[in-house]
Design a binder for these strands. Structure first.
Lengths: 137, 137
DNA sequence: CTTATTGCAAAGGTTTTGCATCGCT
DNA sequence: AGCGATGCAAAACCTTTGCAATAAG
């Protein structure tokens, strides 16, 4: 059961246009996706969509908190559906991003003292070479 | 005692040009710095330097492992001198990046099982509003 | 009906590239 | 002397913007 539907979009004050629904569908389906890949995927189902629409939607969905930016993987901004904080394993060679569920909360165990501000979000990325790439060498 | 000197640069197979030394000096001095800020800072001491030289050096120093990219803070790539894995607190409002030394190793406490590849580097960023910005509200 | 959203085309900003010159080792 | 590095200008690239037309609520 996907949590991404017209109701969720409208709850954020956004309109549920077909373009927006497709964009969310493809982000969810891919798990982690770049703008370019997203545009290609949506365009296959909705050929008249413009790249500017994809960018505008990424902005709107980020502001609404429905999606999050994973980071920049091999030069491309990569996005995902927002969910509980989790860890990413990012392969430097092929760019594949793998979600890892943390045991409990990511943060407090590593800290020695108070933070210099109020925490809003935590991002824990592990970079390396994935097993699949290692076997190809 | 800075670890950034001609010897360290040459050990990576790079030449110790005055531009490169200044670039490293200013990254170290700033702690965390964007390309734009770096170019401005170096240009004050070495007016003839070109922006392309800064970009080429960032690439070379990243490849050599002497510097690391902290992330993208308010749209700007931010770099630092490479050192042991540590935590960054990043203020969403003012962009200030603060280093936090972890209690021990950042990684293993949060993990439940084996990673899908070989770990090379860990990045733990905490986003929020710093105390200084909060007091200004 | 009202207002957000779309698509287009142009503008903006950042980063990369090619090449001749320069300078570190 | 040789080869990497620099600086310049152009090109490439990605992202944003303005605006008229469209469609969602």
């Amino acid at each position: 059961m996907s949590m991404i539907n017209s109701t969720a979009i409208q709850a954020c004050g956004l309109k549920a246009t077909p373009q927006r629904l497709l964009i969310l569908k493809h982000i969810e389906k891919a798990g982690h996706i770049s703008i370019e890949q997203l545009f290609d995927a949506v365009q296959r189902e909705f050929p008249s969509i413009s790249l500017a629409t994809v960018y505008k939607n990424i902005d709107a969905l980020l502001a609404a908190g429905l999606i999050r930016e994973v980071g920049i993987v091999r030069g491309k901004h990569v996005f995902e559906i927002a969910k509980e904080d989790h860890i990413h394993f990012i392969c430097k060679r092929c760019g594949t991003v793998t979600d890892i569920r943390p045991r409990k909360e990511i943060l407090p165990e590593s800290l020695t003292g108070p933070l210099p501000g109020e925490k809003e979000m935590v991002e824990l990325n592990i970079y390396g070479i994935c097993n699949s790439c290692k076997n190809e060498t």
